[in-house]
Design a protein around this nucleic acid. Structure first.
Length: 463
RNA sequence: GGUCCCAUCGUCUAACGGUUAGGACAGAUGGUUUUCAAUCAUCUAAUCGGGGUUCGAUUCCCCGUGGGACCGCCA
């Protein structure tokens, strides 16, 4: 059995987290089964489709490492094919021209609303031999949906789904301007692309019933469907593009690592025993549709941070540095070449206090900037004794020929003894002077990550 | 309102008729620590309610309740 999957977003807005997870699941299923994964841009809504969104979608997916096979497929390029299928459906008696004006439909809807009954298109033109075709009204083409019986879909996630055909209206497949609608285009393209597995959000369930009728009418093989539960906002509603932090860019911007994000998405609605952390390869090997739950899941920011933190702590420091470099050059300020070596070396401790790449950036400010700003409240913590200690430290520090934790430690200890005090009284003023805040990395790490002249310079201010 | 669906700690989830209902995040407490973190240890916390079926139900069935999705000439 072949596995051809696809992700088919419409470029009418930035890619959001639900879409990415759909893409991920499709990609995973294809890769696991040695099948193909395609990307199809559904740009048949000319008004709202934008090239910038298309670019953003492609770049977000590639950031996540979800690489599609072949070129991306642009749906609008296949419109003439969609139209020809609509014509074929008319010929076969599965579709018909409907001359109801938009006003007429609108009126019907209002009427239903007032009476409190559900609106279903009244199929007025379905068998319209006696009706007079109104002048000046361009028809839409509607699919002749089944009136009786039931349609069953064996959904790979939801199980068997059954719906009474009478509840499916005669949906439009060609607009009055002869352009195909989603139901038609998606079905024709899925067929043409030989898609075998359609994984999409649960909000598409009803569409699958409609589309199955098109497949049947054309005598095409119906693909397998898998409707995955939606991701809900923290308010428990379907995530929309307007929700905060629903866009992938928002996560990239705060310094989430793509592997961590992929891992988070994987575990949202899917589980494999108690396992929490999955490498890319593990996720391909272990993913299956059986593990996908049926109920919607809520977005949990603290979990995203937590997984990201785990990745920051455990991945190779060189890789971490590269992610960091890439991140800051895009969202902060490119790193000066002269600082690269020391930053790479310092990753070992800068990462200790970081949940995101942005945190590392903040922690590294005292290295990245030649001049530091000292927090005014912390500056007050430096009293006369502190100044004496700082001056004493400079003298001893300048004498040191090799700099290491082993050589610095005795210096600090002797200062504690000399001034009959504790570590805090020595360490805190030094940290404030060198970093600009009483919060910062461990003292020896700070000193060793700065040039000798710079240490002396920053300390000399306090006399 | 109509149609369809879902229901285990606050959150993500495990347990596919038999477990003291497990793990992770968050929260709490304590140890360690040179600040903040980190780390380690410990703790708190769930099967929506009611009926069945069964020797036994988180698990199967029904009814309630709660929540969600869809109801476009958007995709």
């Amino acid at each position: 059995m072949s596995f051809n999957c696809r992700f088919a977003p419409s470029p009418t807005g930035p890619l959001h987290i639900g879409g990415v997870r759909t893409a991920l699941f499709n990609w995973l299923l294809a890769r696991k089964n040695k099948g193909k994964y395609f990307l199809r841009i559904e740009d048949t809504d000319k008004e709202r489709s934008k090239d910038e969104f298309k670019k953003q979608i492609i770049s977000s997916l590639s950031w996540l490492g979800i690489e599609h096979d072949g070129e991306e497929y642009i749906q609008s390029k296949n419109i003439s094919k969609h139209v020809s299928i609509a014509e074929e459906l008319i010929k076969k008696g599965f579709a018909y021209e409907c001359y109801c004006s938009e006003e007429e439909i609108h009126e019907q809807k209002e009427k239903c609303k007032k009476q409190g009954i559900p609106y279903v298109y009244n199929r007025k033109w379905r068998e319209a031999k006696d009706l007079e075709i109104p002048k000046g009204v361009k028809p839409v083409i509607r699919f002749k949906s089944k009136i009786s019986g039931n349609t069953i879909i064996k959904d790979l996630v939801q199980g068997e789904r059954n719906i009474s055909n009478s509840t499916i209206e005669d949906f439009v497949i060609l607009r009055k301007d002869k352009s195909p609608t989603y139901q038609l285009s998606a079905t024709v393209d899925d067929h043409e692309m030989n898609i075998t597995h359609v994984i999409r959000g649960d909000d598409h369930m009803i569409n699958s019933f409609k589309q199955k009728q098109i497949y049947d009418a054309m005598g095409w093989n119906v693909p397998n469907f898998a409707h995955i539960p939606l991701i809900h906002s923290e308010q428990g509603k379907k995530l929309s593009k307007r929700d905060n932090a629903s866009k992938i860019d928002d996560y990239i911007k705060i310094g989430i690592i793509s592997d961590a994000f992929r891992n988070y998405l994987l575990r949202l609605g899917w589980a494999h025993k108690d396992k929490e952390i999955f490498t890319k390869q593990e996720s391909i090997d272990l993913f299956d549709l059986n593990g996908v739950g049926k109920s919607p899941s809520k977005l949990d920011m603290s979990r995203i941070y937590s997984i990201n933190e785990t990745y920051i702590k455990t991945i190779d420091e060189k890789d971490l540095f590269n992610f960091f470099k890439e991140y800051v050059s895009k969202y902060k300020k490119p790193i000066d070449k002269s600082k690269e070596a020391v930053l790479l070396k310092s990753m070992s401790f800068l990462k200790n206090k970081a949940k995101t790449l942005e945190d590392i950036w903040n922690n590294a400010q005292y290295i990245i900037n030649d001049k530091i700003e000292i927090d005014s409240a912390d500056k007050k913590l430096i009293n006369d004794l502190s100044k004496k200690i700082i001056q004493d430290f400079i003298k001893e520090y300048e004498k040191l020929e090799t700099l290491s934790k082993e050589t610095l430690e005795p210096v600090i200890k002797s200062l504690i003894n000399k001034h009959k005090t504790n570590f805090k009284a020595v360490g805190q003023p030094l940290r404030i002077a060198l970093v600009g805040s009483k919060f910062g990395p461990a003292l020896y790490d700070i000193i060793l990550s700065l040039d000798k002249p710079k240490v002396v310079n920053r300390l000399s201010i306090f006399k």
